[in-house]
Measured scan of single mutants.
Amino acid sequence: YETDHQDYCEVCQQGGEIILCDTCPRAYHLVCLDPELEKAPEGKWSCPHCEKE
């Protein structure tokens, strides 16, 4: 399936195990989030940028 999400972390610009925001195209490593997450959230997730909106 096709997605318009970026394939690198918004914070460190590296690829790998990233989680995708359900609201925007941004993607993040769990450890690059502040506060960092230990595991990917279940269900819908909005990144810090979208949470501020």
Rank of each mutant, 00 (worst) to 15 (best):
K44E: 11
Y8I: 14
P35W: 03
Q6G: 04
L37I: 08
E10A: 09
P35F: 00
C24T: 02
E38M: 11
C9S: 01
G16F: 00
A40E: 04
E36Y: 03
Y1V: 13
C21Q: 00
E2C: 15
W45M: 13
L20T: 14
E42A: 07
P35I: 05
A40G: 06
I19S: 08
E10C: 10
P35N: 05
P48F: 13
K44D: 14
Q14L: 10
V31N: 06
P25L: 06
S46H: 06
W45F: 09
D4R: 12
Q6W: 03
Y1L: 05
E38I: 04
V31F: 11
E51Q: 10
P48L: 11
C24H: 03
T23M: 13
Y28C: 10
H49L: 06
D22S: 05
E51N: 12
E51H: 03
G43P: 11
P48G: 12
E38A: 10
C21T: 00
C50S: 03
C47Q: 00
E17H: 03
P25H: 01
C32M: 00
K44P: 05
I18D: 06
H5Q: 09
K39Y: 04
E2W: 08
C24M: 01
K52I: 00
V11T: 15
Y8F: 05
E36S: 06
H49D: 15
P41V: 08
D7N: 07
S46W: 07
C24L: 01
A27F: 10
E42I: 10
L30K: 11
L20S: 14
A27N: 11
D22N: 10
C47G: 01
P35V: 11
W45R: 06
Q13A: 09
L30W: 09
Q6H: 04
H5G: 14
D7S: 04
L33K: 01
P35M: 13
E2D: 04
C12G: 01
C47T: 03
G15S: 11
E53V: 04
E10G: 10
C50I: 03
C32Y: 01
K39T: 10
V11W: 09
W45S: 09
P35K: 12
K39C: 03
Y8Q: 15
L30M: 12
K52A: 06
G15T: 10
K44Q: 09
K52T: 15
G15Q: 08
C50Y: 02
V11D: 11
D22R: 09
W45C: 13
E51G: 08
R26H: 15
